[in-house]
Amino acid sequence: MRALIQRVRSASVSVDEQGVGRIEQGLLAYIGLGHDDNLQTAKRLIDKILTYRVFENNDDPAKYGKLDNNVQQIGGGLLLVSQFTLMAKTDKGRRPDFGDAMAPEAAQALFAQLIEYAKTQYPIIATGQFGANMQVESINDGPLNFLLEVQ
């Protein structure tokens, strides 16, 4: 399972020009699900995202400017967006190979479980719409982007 997380000042997702998810300062997380992923993998990924320190500590003069705080510590939002293309193999040829991505039906069920778990761990969760053609808008902060992987 992979997540591309972006530190944002704000982010939103729309489908057919209708807003489906929005956060202010926090993390935009694109989630890619692979064949071997399961609920335990999803829980590990959410736990890692929620505790990954990508926000500066401006309260402690000794740590000023260091990436010392996580999204929970700053009270930021977490916007979760399914993104099967994160599982693409790109090392050969000129076309991505999506063979490592989980089948859509299984991925939809697992992504729903991932969202439910995230909501039990943190109250400021927003989501995109699985399988939809989404328009994602974000104001990146930094920019800071990290690719997280768990197995």
Rank of each mutant, 00 (worst) to 15 (best):
L45K: 14
L45F: 15
L45G: 08
L45D: 10
I46C: 05
I46E: 07
I46S: 05
I46T: 04
I46P: 02
I46N: 05
D47S: 10
D47P: 09
D47H: 10
D47V: 03
D47R: 10
D47A: 10
K48R: 15
K48Y: 14
K48C: 11
K48N: 14
K48E: 15
K48V: 11
I49R: 01
I49A: 03
I49W: 02
I49Y: 01
I49G: 02
L50Y: 09
L50V: 14
L50F: 11
L50S: 13
L50G: 10
L50D: 10
T51S: 12
T51P: 00
T51W: 01
Y52T: 15
Y52G: 01
Y52W: 09
Y52V: 06
Y52S: 09
Y52H: 14
Y52L: 12
Y52D: 03
R53G: 12
R53C: 11
R53M: 11
R53T: 13
R53A: 13
V54I: 13
V54P: 06
V54E: 05
V54Y: 03
F55P: 00
F55I: 01
F55D: 03
F55W: 01
E56F: 02
E56I: 02
E56C: 12
E56T: 11
E56M: 09
N57K: 06
N57I: 06
N57M: 08
N57E: 13
N57V: 07
N58W: 06
N58H: 11
N58A: 09
D59K: 10
D59R: 10
D60E: 08
D60M: 01
D60W: 02
P61Q: 07
A62P: 00
A62K: 12
A62I: 04
A62M: 05
K63N: 14
K63Q: 15
K63M: 14
K63G: 04
Y64L: 15
Y64G: 05
Y64V: 12
Y64R: 15
G65I: 13
K66T: 15
K66S: 14
K66Y: 14
L67A: 00
L67I: 00
L67E: 00
D68K: 01
D68H: 04
D68R: 01
D68N: 07
N69E: 04
N69H: 09
N69L: 12
N69I: 00
N70S: 15
N70W: 06
N70I: 11
N70C: 15
V71D: 06
V71T: 09
V71E: 04
V71W: 01
V71K: 04
V71M: 05
Q72I: 11
Q72H: 05
Q72E: 11
Q72L: 09
Q72D: 03
Q72V: 11
Q72T: 10
Q73K: 13
Q73W: 06
Q73A: 14
Q73F: 07
Q73I: 08
Q73C: 08
I74H: 04
I74Q: 05
I74W: 02
G75K: 08
G75F: 09
G75R: 07
G75A: 08
G75Q: 07
G75D: 07
G75P: 09
G76K: 13
G76P: 12
G76F: 13
G77Q: 00
G77L: 00
G77T: 00
G77H: 00
L78T: 03
L78M: 04
L78V: 14
L78D: 04
L78C: 04
L79W: 03
L79R: 03
